[in-house]
């Protein structure tokens, strides 16, 4: 996908999001006008309006680039990956798989912590994350997981007096 195609897709997605907000979310989830002051929907509409206007301006600029023989200037058009020789910032299949690999344990932790005690689930989580990042030194992994788990437990329970999430085992 070329740079122009990707910018076009991104701007069209923004236009779609703005349409969704304008025609469904803002009218449905905003209180009615109380009869004085500005409408509760005004700021939302203005915010969506800014996004929409900028997306449309960008689309016009892209159309000028495609049909008007007016190419995008380098600094204006470049996505970060084009300037980054190492290619860290590409959004490809590999990157998305990588993202999902790390996000999945995090979201699982949010749900699992309601049912499993903090001390256990935090230890498991830290072990999994270290493994995913590439640590294969099991002694180091266990030491870091236990130390971090215990440190945060002590700081939260005894330092700030905040209950740790999930069922309490101690």
């Amino acid at each position: 996908m070329s740079r122009i195609q990707r910018e076009t897709v991104a701007n069209l997605l923004i236009v779609g999001f703005c349409g969704l907000m304008w025609f469904w979310a803002i009218p449905t989830y905003t209180p009615p006008y109380p009869g004085y002051g500005a409408s509760p929907a005004l700021v939302g509409n203005v915010a969506v309006g800014i996004m929409l206007a900028m997306a449309i301006l960008s689309l016009i600029r892209l159309m000028l680039a495609i049909y008007g023989n007016n190419p995008l200037p380098a600094d204006e058009a470049q996505f970060p990956e084009d300037t980054n020789s190492a290619g860290f910032t590409q959004v490809g299949r590999v990157n998305l798989v990588h993202l999902i690999t790390f996000m999945l344990p995090c979201f699982l932790l949010v749900f699992a912590i309601e049912y499993v005690a903090y001390l256990i689930i935090a230890f498991v989580f830290l072990m999994v994350m270290q493994y995913l990042i590439g640590n294969r030194n099991w002694v180091q992994m266990v030491v870091i997981a236990v130390a971090m788990d215990a440190l945060l437990y002590v700081v939260m329970r005894h330092g700030f007096g905040v209950p740790v999430p999930g069922p309490q085992i101690i």
Binding site: A47, V48, I50, M51, M54, A55, S58, D75, E76
Partner: peptide, 16 residues
């Protein structure tokens, strides 16, 4: 950002 347009889209999203 390299583009004020993208910056304003982000600012609008922040306002929303």
């Amino acid at each position: 950002t390299n583009s004020l347009f993208r910056g304003l889209v982000a600012a609008g999203f922040g306002l929303l």
